[in-house]
Design a protein around this nucleic acid. Structure first.
Lengths: 202, 202
DNA sequence: GATATTTTTTACCAAATGTTAAGGAAGTTT
DNA sequence: AAACTTCCTTAACATTTGGTAAAAAATATC
């Protein structure tokens, strides 16, 4: 659909204005795809060949630790990118997984088209660098503040910083992001509930 | 000293070649400074007005949590940058602190000179973006892998990923980075010692 | 609508980590 | 050299979190 591309274009233009030829060209290089809940967009062990711009839905990136447990690294949602930048740029196999948590709609550019864009849109390199930067800063900001707190504080901060995610994502993934078991998170939520009941009492 | 600048220049040229005018210009915009152990390079509540390139020494960035405790976000060492990018770019006050852990020597550019460089070296924007990107990816990679593990595993991974830091930084800062108390870290180190003794027995 | 599947909650016990307190080693300053 | 910081370790006890198991609740699938 045309409006899909327009949303993507608007995002891009926050960083740099493209001329109409560039826009046409960019448009012809993208396609819209859908992913249903719980399916994978990227699996570790493969090279990341696509950049996906999320139009609708929430995804997560996760890796597998030495015990075989999944570790959710971060959540991505509308107007963010689904890609393993390091694998995409270096052409090496990825060690992360990207999975749709809800049904998702993405705009996608594959690696070859992306190279073509680099060579044919003079500001493309600059645009993508700025976008990458922006995304990395966002992720780092969210992450660093979490490590050293205890679990209830991590959860509280997460609610403040990413309230939308809490509403839209199953708790098991949030627990995995916070580095605790779903059982622990359930316990923490229960104790929060009690507190808020006490606070709201007359 | 001249060799100070040359080390900085070599780092820069990994990203983009500068012509000799640009180099001269860059050189005239930098100065070398020293910081003694435990002094602050940036304090929260102030705008970050400098970019420092570390020639010698190790620094850390930390923030203060709601309990008033320090949380070490990451360590930076030789060939890395001491700067709060967000504050430097946006000119807003910073909420992080940057502190020398060992005695440090830095090459420094102030904000005005940096703007001047942007306007007078055509590739400067590109260079700084690439450097920022590189640094952010490194930090994010180190961080995400730590959150969900238990403390002994976090310490083990830290030793593998940043062995130099372990040698050169007091344990209290490492504990703060790993999100545990110095007492816990001491306990963990002790149990590691026992293990390695057992493993090395005939 | 009945049946799977996924997600959330509860409970009990074990293990890990924090808290508090204190002492000693190593390095700095006076 | 003495006094002062800073850093590291140890210990006892309290608290938090994990592991295991199971059931209830919510969703998805047929």
């Amino acid at each position: 659909m045309d409006s899909d591309f327009i949303r993507f274009q608007k995002f891009i233009e926050r960083f740099q204005i493209l001329n109409s030829d560039d826009k046409e060209f960019l448009k012809s290089s993208t396609k819209t795809i859908t992913l249903s809940k719980r399916t994978h967009y990227l699996e570790s062990g493969r090279v990341c060949n696509y950049v996906g711009f999320i139009l609708d839905g929430i995804m997560r990136t996760y890796s597998i630790d030495n015990n075989g447990d999944e570790i959710t690294m971060y959540f991505i949602k509308e107007n963010q990118f689904a890609v393993d930048i390091e694998s995409f740029n270096s052409r090496k196999i990825s060690d992360i997984n990207i999975q749709a948590i809800t049904d998702c709609k993405l705009i996608q550019i594959d690696f070859n088209d992306f190279e073509y864009l680099k060579n044919n849109i003079s500001s493309w390199g600059q645009i993508t660098l700025e976008i990458t930067n922006y995304a990395l800063l966002e992720k780092l900001r969210n992450r660093s503040s979490l490590v050293a707190e205890d679990a209830p504080t991590r959860y509280e901060k997460f609610i403040q910083e990413q309230p939308e995610i809490v509403q839209r994502v199953p708790l098991i993934y949030i627990a995995s992001y916070l580095g605790i078991t779903p059982q622990s998170l359930s316990r923490i939520r229960k104790s929060f509930l009690k507190k808020s009941v006490i606070n709201k009492a007359p």
